[in-house]
Each structure stands twice: as structure tokens, then as C-alpha cells.
């Protein structure tokens, strides 16, 4: 039998790794992505070693400080009030889409800080609502002129990761309609009238992310770690892609080998290449790293 060598490039191409690899590893040519016309997306990653304590409890004071710094950096404003005014107007009706997953919810301290920021701009208390599963029936969300999207990143049994893109699944009455091909087209949710064009800020919570799941509820504290970070961006795809790179890096570190997130979280890449929602490729992301650098993984 004649044995011919298979070039690495051919193997990657044949295995369909080219597109996924360029996204997951950030090392392959950007031209592989169909859309290269958008401007770079700014993503602010901020960390502080005291953001959570040993038991995972949030230090509210530290959280307030890093959140303000991230917001001013993202908006390019020197004062936090100016930063809020850059994204929210006093007459806005604002829905804060959080996540109530019992094992790893959006921290209430963060929800409070967002509420304070909104009220500081002059948004009326009655025009602000924080909700997750009840958004379709929530009058503030029904009449919202602006949305703020905030959730922790975690691995997920079906979509690969629970992401900012996925966080809008509750804007659809039957979330499972978006499950085909392991949630490939979640970005379509962002075209829904309740959502389209309204998102002013995306906050991916990376305080104690879940990088691996076991059991029916896909949670074990053993697979979380104190990363103590927040990721802020106007581009949900860029924020998610950055968070995913951190999760992948942590898995490599923990398992001592490349262990891909499974199923593939391709809804993030497809949000870029198929749905034009934002930038998933590292080459199209301007990543600003602030604060604690130890173990940053990216």
C-alpha cells in the first residue's frame, strides 16, 4: 500500500477546522471569515483579584470600581456619568436582561450598579426593569427603547456555552425553536422587534465562570474558578468570542490537553459569518486589558 502524506493544511481544511480553528485558536488567517468589512470591535476586559472572596461572594465596592473603569474605557469618557450619558438618555425605557440560572446567576450587585447608573442619568425608576424569564410579559421590556444585556459565561450542554447572544432566548416564547444544529442560529433572536437595535451595552460576567459541566444540571463548583473579570462591549459577538477564548484556555490549563468545548459553540462564529451581528475573529477585536493580569489566559 502506498502511503501519502496529508499536509496539515489539507487536513485542517478537510476536517472543517479552518473556520472553527481560526475562531477558537485565533491563529489562522482572517480572510477565512466571509465578512471582513466591519470595523474592529472594542472589548474591555477588566479584572481585580479581590472582586470575589474565597467563597465566590462579590465585593460590591470593588465591583463598582472596576465596572465604572470599564465603562469609561469602553465609551472613551473620563467620568462615569458621561459614560452612562453616552449610551442612555433620561427618557429611555430600559430593560436589563439578566440571567437567573440558579447555580451562576447575574450577580445582584451588578444589577444594582446598573440600576444606579441608569437612575444617575435621569431614567425614571418605573422605566427600569431587571428580568430574565419574564421579559415577554414585562411592560418595561415590552416598551423598551434600550436594553442592557448582562450574564455570566458558562459551558452549556447544547449550545456549547451560555453566551450574551444566547441570553436573548427568553425573548422568544418557545426557546427550543432555536435548538436545531446545537443552537447555530441564536443570533436571529437579535432581529426580533423587541430586541432589534436596542442593545446599548453587553456585560459578560467572568467572576467565577463555569468551564466544564457534569450531571443533569451541568454544574459543579469544582469546574468554576475565580477569574474575577468583567467583559464589556457594544458588540455581543466580540464579547462572547473573547469570553470563549478564556474558557478554552482554562480547559487547556485544567485538563492538560486541548479539550474542545462540546458541542461546538459555533453560534458565536455564525453570529458573525452568517448573521452579521458582530465580530467573532480575534483579528477584528480590539481587546483592552485592564487591572489584574495574573492568570489572564488571553
Amino acid at each position: 500500500m502506498t502511503i501519502k502524506k496529508l499536509s496539515r493544511r489539507e487536513a485542517l481544511k478537510r476536517l472543517g477546522l479552518a473556520a472553527a480553528g481560526s475562531f477558537l485558536l485565533g491563529s489562522l488567517p482572517g480572510r477565512l471569515f466571509a465578512q471582513a468589512h466591519r470595523e474592529k470591535s472594542r472589548v474591555v476586559l477588566i479584572r481585580h483579584k479581590d472582586l470575589t472572596d474565597g467563597s465566590g461572594q462579590v465585593n460590591r465596592q470593588v465591583l463598582a470600581s472596576v465596572f465604572d473603569r470599564a465603562l469609561t474605557t469602553l465609551t472613551g469618557k473620563s467620568q462615569v456619568e458621561e459614560a452612562w450619558r453616552r449610551i442612555i438618555q433620561p427618557d429611555d425605557v430600559v430593560g436589563v436582561k439578566s440571567n437567573v440560572w440558579s447555580h451562576l446567576p447575574t450577580p445582584p450587585e451588578l444589577e444594582e450598579l446598573i440600576g444606579e447608573g441608569l437612575r444617575g442619568v435621569g431614567v425614571k425608576k418605573d422605566n427600569i426593569s431587571v428580568d430574565d424569564r419574564g421579559v415577554l410579559d414585562d411592560p418595561v421590556f415590552q416598551n423598551a427603547t434600550a436594553l442592557i444585556n448582562a450574564r455570566p459565561m458558562r459551558t452549556h450542554d447544547w449550545s456549547g456555552v451560555g453566551s450574551l447572544i444566547k441570553n436573548y432566548i427568553m425573548f422568544h416564547p418557545r426557546p427550543w425553536d432555536y435548538h436545531p444544529d446545537t443552537c447555530a442560529d441564536l443570533a436571529k433572536l437579535w432581529e426580533k422587534p423587541m430586541v432589534k437595535g436596542k442593545t446599548r451595552l453587553n456585560i459578560l460576567v467572568m467572576l467565577t465562570p463555569l468551564f466544564h459541566g457534569v450531571g443533569p444540571h451541568h454544574f459543579n463548583k469544582k469546574y468554576t474558578w475565580r477569574y474575577n473579570g468583567l467583559i464589556l462591549s457594544f458588540d455581543p459577538v466580540a464579547a462572547d468570542a473573547t469570553g470563549l477564548r478564556i474558557i478554552e484556555a482554562r480547559r487547556r490549563e485544567y485538563f492538560g490537553e486541548k479539550r474542545p468545548v462540546s458541542p461546538s459553540p459555533h453560534h458565536i462564529r455564525l453570529a458573525d459569518t452568517r448573521h452579521n451581528l458582530g465580530n467573532a475573529h480575534a483579528d477584528r477585536i480590539e481587546l483592552v486589558r485592564l487591572g489584574w493580569q495574573d492568570g489572564i489566559l488571553i
Binding site: 500500500m1 502511503i3 501519502k4 502524506k5 496529508l6 487536513a11
Partner: peptide
Amino acid sequence: GKLVPRLRKEKALQDEQ
């Protein structure tokens, strides 16, 4: 066909690594 069509004939292939 999606992987490497030569596999049908050769059954095994080595990559550059």
C-alpha cells in the same frame, strides 16, 4: 469525501505532524 477522498483507497494517511 469530506475528510480526504484518498482515504477510500489508502485507508490511512499521515499528516505533516
